[in-house]
Amino acid sequence: MGAGNAILVVAEHDNSQLKAATLNTLQAAVEVKAQSGGAIELIICGQACNAVVEQAAALPDVDRIMVADAESLAHQLPEDVANVLIDQLRGGEYGHLLASATTMGKNLMPRVAALMDVAQISEITEVVSADTFIRPIYAGNALAKVQSSDALKVITVRSTAFAAVAETGGSAEAINLETTSASGLSSFIGEELSVSERPELTSARIIISGGRGMQSGDNFPLLEAVADKMGAAVGASRAAVDSGFVSNDMQVGQTGKIVAPDLYIAVGISGAIQHLAGMKDSKVIVAINKDEEAPIFNVADFGLVADLFEVLPELEKALG
């Protein structure tokens, strides 16, 4: 492998919109660039994704855009996207490959790393130097500082740990890549995406989450009414999702979504280690629980020991 130092960032998008997490990942790339001096290239794999290319071209921190537009990439399945990335990486021009630690990035990046015979550094929260990074382990109960000896560093980035880069003012050129035919290993059948008027969990400024204490999915409208008064997103603990109260995409925690809003309100959530791992970096934490011994109070800035079924309507009213 050559000794190139360019930085390749995988854009996350749905063929029409660049996802916010990519802006945070680009900030990590900017920090790597400050150390290695490599140019930042954004790669967009999809089908008929011109709108995404336009948004990407406006990003002032992006030096160049690579576009792989093909029918086989319409749903960005990892078997096919990995092959595009490998073709790009093989020449040895790159020192770093970055993607967001979303389900998309987590699915794709280890496949690429293994094909390149390099390690992956998952969910970094800090760039120490061009080869050294900090990442949480044991559900965030410890932080590991790891140094890579591979020529190519494959990295996923925890979005909440990096600010978003500016979205306008740039004029990067876009280069179209040759794409190979589909691998034929996998095919897309369909998806069920939750549709909500509320902000997305991972980018919301305020989140209100419900746990087992909500008792049933039928009680979540109490939470939603408060959320709508504050312009908040609605989340849930694993217990609430496992019990079938709400769908999996609302889960906050070690294996669900990692969030760090300005305000996180935990309602009827006891505070298992796995839940705390997903929200303890929030700026202000409020816990509402009738069990005053609940571990959630140990991380809360403001705790209210009370019955949530009385508190939620009152809170909705108080927020006018």
Binding site: T132, L143, F297
Partner: peptide, 16 residues
């Protein structure tokens, strides 16, 4: 391929 240079505690939250 990786060397763990250090493992530290995450910053503690102040009591609320």
């Amino acid at each position: 391929r990786l060397t763990v240079l250090e493992v530290t505690n995450p910053p503690e939250r102040a009591a609320g």
